[in-house]
Computed example of a mutant assay.
Amino acid sequence: MQFEWKGVFPAITTQFTADDRLDLQMFDKNLSAQLEAGIHGVILGGTLGESSTLTKEEKEILIRFTREKVAGRIPVILNIAEGSTRAAIAEARWAEQLGVDGLMLLPPMRYKADDRETVQFFREVARSVDLPIMIYNNPVDYRIMVTPDMFDQLMDCENIQAVKDSTRDVTNVTRMINRFGNRYRMLCGVDTLAMESLLMGASGWVGGLVNAFPQETLLLYHLILSAQREKALEVHRWFLPLLELDLSPKLVQYIKLAASVTGIGAAYVRAPRLPLVGEEKAQILALIQNAITAEPAWMRDRQILHEAAAITSEK
């Protein structure tokens, strides 16, 4: 599939049953809500997808199910997070054979590779497949910073096309665009910085809270891109307390709990993560419910979303 790294790409949660099996019925419900809101692509097996806890068989089930569900309407992206170059190449080739449309690629896991090793890792994985690749740059959580100088060394890898920028430094969007133009598409990877990143020229948003609030996420994206500043600010200011859930080490538990409240997901997580309990659960539930109560009614109007989306599609 030919596609652009542009728009809202949910890092979709993996849904589990109470007895720790894949819950494809609930996964389908969540994905359907995303599609109805107008997402532009879907990322399987990211941090929010609890990738490190999934078996290869479960990943294959999710890939096949998602590809059948989206039926070619949007790209299906698989996250690759492996500790060795050999394992990452094997996973990438396997995903390509299963028909995914692209890859999101993390630096080597566990070992803190230096710049030369990281560049070589990306280069070897990229050369092993024909799939378009988005590099996941998240030095806060994964310790390795992929610098502009490193991206300069990857220029000849034509299928490395985009960057999920989770550096927490919104100026990095401008820095990359100033240096490389449109060679690398920049997608915001931190929910709280999505508005600023899109205004600075990012082409998309890899979303977390979209798992619970797809309508509101797509509305914010399209209002920003259609230059409806006042409405975009109102959505952003309402949304920010929820978006901050994406910054926590427990973002999986928090976002899944939010999706359970909005009715398009379940709160079950896979060990070693544990469900929220006690005061912590009460605090997060109160935050979510207060936000839902305070949401302006106009934001729920799908016609406003459709009109804003129509404007951005013309650009």
Rank of each mutant, 00 (worst) to 15 (best):
V70A: 14
R123D: 08
K59H: 13
Q303T: 15
D169P: 09
A90S: 12
L48K: 02
D20L: 13
D246R: 01
P296K: 00
F27N: 10
S260K: 08
E234H: 14
Q161A: 05
R73I: 07
T167S: 15
Q15C: 10
N178K: 12
A271Y: 12
A212H: 00
M200C: 11
I288W: 05
G102V: 10
R116D: 15
G265Y: 01
V70L: 14
I292V: 05
L240Q: 11
T118A: 14
G207N: 01
G102F: 05
F151W: 04
K59Q: 15
E158Y: 11
R168W: 14
K69W: 14
G46Q: 06
K69M: 15
I89M: 02
V42S: 08
T14N: 02
A232D: 04
F213S: 02
I311H: 07
T55Q: 01
F27S: 13
R110L: 12
M299G: 09
V129Q: 04
G181L: 04
V76D: 03
L44W: 10
L62G: 06
S51W: 07
I89G: 00
D20W: 02
P139S: 10
T312W: 09
V170T: 15
L31Q: 07
L220N: 11
R86T: 09
T66A: 10
I264V: 06
V140Y: 14
A71M: 12
F151M: 13
G201N: 03
I43C: 11
N137F: 08
L187S: 04
H306P: 06
D130G: 15
L247P: 07
C157A: 12
D169M: 14
D156L: 06
I61S: 09
A162R: 05
V261N: 04
P75Y: 00
I89Q: 03
G263S: 05
W298T: 01
R67G: 13
T17H: 08
G46H: 03
P139D: 10
T118E: 11
D165R: 03
L22T: 02
R86A: 13
D28Y: 12
F16Y: 11
N290L: 03
T192W: 02
P214V: 05
I224H: 09
L131C: 10
L242M: 10
S166Q: 08
D156G: 04
I74Y: 04
E230F: 00
W5T: 00
E230K: 08
N182C: 03
D165F: 05
L257Q: 01
T17A: 04
S226K: 08
Y268W: 12
V100C: 06
Y268I: 05
G102M: 07
L305H: 11
Y268H: 13
V269Q: 03
E117Y: 03
G207E: 01
R67Q: 15
P10D: 00
E124V: 00
L243F: 08
E230A: 08
A71R: 14
I12L: 05
D141H: 15
G265Q: 02
N211D: 00
L276I: 05
R116K: 13
V261Q: 03
G38N: 09
G189M: 01
G72K: 09
